[in-house]
C-alpha cells in the first residue's frame, strides 16, 4: 500500500521528534482527507451492494468487522516493531509510537469483538461462542488492555517504555503459541453446533467494498496513530516544561 510505504519512509527519516511534528502537521490533513474519501466510497459500496441470500442484510457488518479484525493484528505488529525500535535501535520515537498505538489497537479490537458479537447473534443465536478465532481476538484485547494499564501505571516515560517494550515483544512471540493452543483447546472441546465462518470463497461482489473498507480502515489507523504520536510528544513536552517550572519556581523570590 502506498500510504504504508509513505509512513515507513517517514519513520526511517525521522531523527528527532521536532522533525516528526513538522511532518505530521503537513501530512495529517491529507491523510485525514484521504481517509474520509475512502470511507465515503467504502460505505457507499457497502450499502449499495446486494445482501447475501443466506445472511441477508447482516452481511454488511462484515465490512466493518473484518477490517477492524485485520487492524487489531496489524496494530500489534506496529507495536512490536516499535518495541524492537525502542530496545534495539533506541529510536526516540519508537516508544512514543508503541504507546500511542496501544489504545488505538484496543479500540479496533473492541470494534471487531462488538461487531462480531452483533453479527453472531442473528447467525448463531448467541452473542458469543468460544470459537477459536473469536477467543484469540479476545485474548489479544486483554493484552492490549494490560499494556495500556502498564503504560498508565508508570509516570516516567523513559523507564516505562523499556518495560512495556519487553512485554510487547514477549506478547508478540506468544501470539502464535496462544493461537495454536486456543485452536487445539477448541478442537478438543468444540461442540459441532457452531457454524464456522470460513465457508466458500468470498464472492467478488463482497470483495470490492471489503477491500475499499480495509484501505479506509488502514488509513484511519495511520491518521489516528500519527495524531496520537503527536499528542504524546506534546504531552511529554508539557510535562518536561512543568518539571522545569517546578525547578525554577521560588528561586528568584528567595535569592538573598
Amino acid at each position: 500500500m502506498s500510504e504504508n510505504s509513505l509512513a515507513i519512509r517517514k519513520f526511517s527519516d525521522l531523527a528527532n521528534p521536532t522533525r516528526f511534528l513538522a511532518l505530521a502537521a503537513r501530512a495529517l490533513p491529507w491523510l485525514a482527507a484521504l481517509t474520509a474519501l475512502f470511507f465515503a466510497a467504502g460505505l457507499w459500496l457497502s450499502f449499495t451492494t446486494e445482501g447475501d441470500y443466506q445472511q441477508g442484510e447482516t452481511v454488511r457488518i462484515m465490512y466493518v468487522h473484518v477490517p477492524s479484525a485485520w487492524l487489531s493484528m496489524m496494530c500489534y505488529t506496529v507495536m512490536a516493531i516499535s518495541a524492537l525500535g525502542t530496545l534495539v535501535w533506541r529510536h526516540p520515537l519508537a516508544d512514543v509510537s508503541a504507546k500511542a498505538a496501544a489504545p488505538i489497537g484496543a479500540c479496533f479490537t473492541f470494534l471487531a469483538l462488538v461487531t462480531g458479537s452483533l453479527w453472531g447473534k442473528p447467525m448463531w443465536g448467541t452473542w458469543w461462542v468460544w470459537d477459536a478465532r473469536l477467543t484469540s481476538v479476545f485474548v489479544l484485547f486483554l493484552m492490549y488492555l494490560g499494556l495500556i494499564a502498564l503504560n498508565r501505571a508508570m509516570d516516567d516515560p523513559s523507564r516505562s517504555a523499556r518495560v512495556s517494550a519487553v512485554l510487547v515483544l514477549v506478547g508478540f512471540v506468544n501470539i502464535p503459541i496462544i493461537k495454536f493452543s486456543v485452536d487445539w483447546w477448541n478442537t478438543l472441546h468444540q461442540p459441532a453446533s457452531v457454524i464456522r465462518l470460513d465457508g466458500p470463497t468470498i464472492d467478488p461482489e463482497f470483495l470490492r467494498p471489503l477491500i475499499v473498507m480495509a484501505i479506509a480502515f488502514t488509513l484511519l489507523f495511520f491518521t489516528l496513530h500519527i495524531g496520537a504520536m503527536r499528542n504524546e510528544i506534546w504531552r511529554r513536552r508539557v510535562a518536561s516544561l512543568r518539571r522545569q517550572a517546578a525547578r525554577n519556581a521560588g528561586r528568584e523570590q528567595l535569592a538573598p
Binding site: R242, R243, A245, A246, A249, G250, Q253
Partner: peptide, 21 residues
C-alpha cells in the same frame, strides 16, 4: 511559602524542599 506560581503542578513534580514548603 514563596511558591504561588506552581500550585497547578502535580505534587510529585516538586523537589523535596518545595514539597516541604
Amino acid at each position: 511559602v514563596g511558591l504561588a506560581d506552581i500550585i497547578h503542578l502535580p505534587f510529585g513534580y516538586l523537589s523535596a524542599g518545595q514539597q516541604r514548603r
